[in-house]
């Protein structure tokens, strides 16, 4: 049974989701002080999506992320300490402090980068998936994108190309209900992004993005299909973000109490904890211990990020060109 996680796997899933949450909550707090340069888009609320997908991936599998990329990075194994330094613009960051939140990348982990171009990840993943297919190494590429990107030509072209070439790719549409401030129920013509899959000749499924197990099962089947040469799949994850499009967004387009209700009734960490502790397989103390370890890690990441040096002026001229 591909879908059953053992105790170790369940604890790993929780640790990943908790790390993403703690990281994002801390960036939310620290950004308000004005010390963090640039722009941040937080992933809090959507943790089950990145975690449920990336737990099926191996080191050489690739993911392409979005402007809301911190969760994807952590789930794919990028070091949170280097990530925090990157967001603080420090030379110890994942990209030596030159990228910031929206351009965190770590090719050694198969993380092609957060991406400021909405819909930019689709063509990248077609590229890596074509390389996988030509090498024949059974690796896969995952394109995370949002409801806004689902209307972009790049994503539609990428899904077409992935089917035409039968690429080992999975398109994960994280539909959080809003493209910046525009409701997806208004802007996505067919309303369910998954409905578009059949037009490209690929399967399209919808899963509850607050339920880790639902995402994990669906992503597992899609990734297995891709690895076995079955071609691409579109997985629409219905989810919601807890914060604004960016930090500072007043969110006047959201209903009163919308986020509060989601946090109280649907939160992925809450549901996960309730589920895995129900029959004593994992105790609340086990999970509390992970909470403490994660909190310590994130605290350390901030302390180090604040203390680490900024890039020098001379660094402006390094890493500009790549020779093949």
């Amino acid at each position: 049974m591909s879908k059953t996680l053992n105790r170790e796997g369940l604890l790993e899933a929780y640790r990943t989701m908790r790390t993403i949450r703690e990281f994002e909550e801390r960036v939310h707090t620290d950004f308000a002080t004005g010390e963090i340069p640039g722009f941040v888009h937080l992933y809090a609320g959507e943790e089950a999506s990145a975690t449920g997908v990336c737990m099926h991936l191996k080191g050489k599998d690739c993911i392409a992320s979005t402007h809301r990329g911190h969760g994807h990075c952590i789930a794919k194994g990028v070091d949170p300490i280097e990530m925090m330094a990157e967001i603080w613009g420090k030379s110890t960051g994942s990209c030596k402090g030159k990228g910031g939140s929206m351009h965190i990348a770590d090719l050694s982990k198969g993380m092609l980068g957060a991406n400021g171009i909405v819909g930019g990840g689709g063509p990248l993943i077609c590229g890596t998936a074509l390389a996988s297919k030509m090498r024949g190494d059974k690796t896969v590429g995952i394109c995370f994108f949002g409801d806004g990107a689902s209307n972009q030509g790049t994503i539609l072209e990428a899904m077409n190309l992935a089917t035409v070439w039968s690429l080992p790719a999975v398109f994960v549409a994280e539909n959080n209900g809003y493209a910046e401030t525009t409701s997806s129920s208004w802007s996505v013509s067919c309303d369910n992004i998954a409905d578009r899959a059949s037009a490209f000749g690929m399967p399209g499924v919808i899963v509850d993005g607050f339920d880790f197990f639902a995402v994990y099962e669906a992503a597992g089947e899609a990734i297995k299909r891709a690895r076995e040469g079955g071609g691409p799949t579109l997985v629409e994850v219905k989810v919601s973000r807890y914060y604004g499009h960016f930090e500072g967004d007043q969110q006047t387009y959201r209903a009163d109490g919308e986020v509060k209700k989601l946090r109280e009734e649907k939160d992925c960490l809450m549901q996960f904890r309730r589920h895995v502790t129900a029959d004593g397989e994992i105790s609340n103390a086990d999970l509390d211990a992970i909470d403490s370890e994660v909190l310590a890690l994130i605290n350390e990441s901030v302390v180090r990020a604040k203390a680490d040096p900024k890039p020098e002026a001379a660094d402006l001229l390094t890493d500009v060109y790549v020779s093949y």
């Binding site: 369910n192 899959a197 399967p203 399209g204 499924v205 669906a218 899609a222 299909r225």
Partner: peptide
């Protein structure tokens, strides 16, 4: 008509 069986079983859309 949209669950995982579109993927695992080629079910109708």
């Amino acid at each position: 008509g949209r669950d995982i069986r579109r993927l695992t079983a080629k079910a109708s859309v």
